[in-house]
Amino acid sequence: MPEGTFTISASATDFATKSQSVTLTPGETEPVNFSLSSNPASLSGIVIDAQTKAPLAGALVEVFIVGTTIPVKSTLTDANGQYLVSGLLKAEYRVVISADNYGSQPFRVVLAPGERETLNAALQPNPATIQGRVIDAQTGNPIRGAGVVTVITGSGIIVASAKTDLNGNYIISGLAPGSYDVVFSADNFAAHTSTVN
Rank of each mutant, 00 (worst) to 15 (best):
I143E: 00
L111G: 01
F34V: 15
K73C: 01
K163G: 13
R94N: 15
T52D: 04
T118H: 04
L111H: 02
V182M: 11
S104M: 13
L175A: 07
V196N: 03
V148G: 00
V159K: 00
G4V: 12
V47G: 13
L123Q: 07
Q105Y: 00
Q82R: 12
A128D: 03
F15S: 08
A79G: 04
L175H: 03
G45T: 03
A54T: 12
S86A: 11
N197Y: 03
A176I: 04
Y93A: 02
E117A: 06
I46L: 05
T193D: 04
L43H: 03
T52G: 05
V47R: 11
I97M: 14
H192T: 09
N80R: 14
T25F: 09
S44M: 11
D78N: 14
E30D: 03
D14I: 04
G87Q: 15
R133G: 02
Q82Y: 02
G154K: 08
P40W: 02
D136Q: 01
F184H: 04
L123S: 13
A190E: 08
T139R: 03
K90Y: 12
N80Y: 01
S44D: 06
Y170Q: 11
P31G: 09
D78F: 12
V32M: 12
Y93L: 03
Y170M: 14
T13G: 06
E3Q: 08
I172E: 06
T13P: 05
A99H: 13
D100S: 06
S86Q: 04
T193R: 13
S21G: 05
Q138A: 15
D165N: 13
P71I: 14
E62Q: 15
G87Y: 00
T23L: 05
L119S: 15
I152V: 15
E3T: 06
P113R: 03
N33I: 03
K73S: 12
A162I: 02
E62V: 09
V196S: 05
A10S: 14
I8Q: 13
T75K: 10
L166Q: 14
P127H: 08
S179R: 10
G156Q: 04
A162R: 06
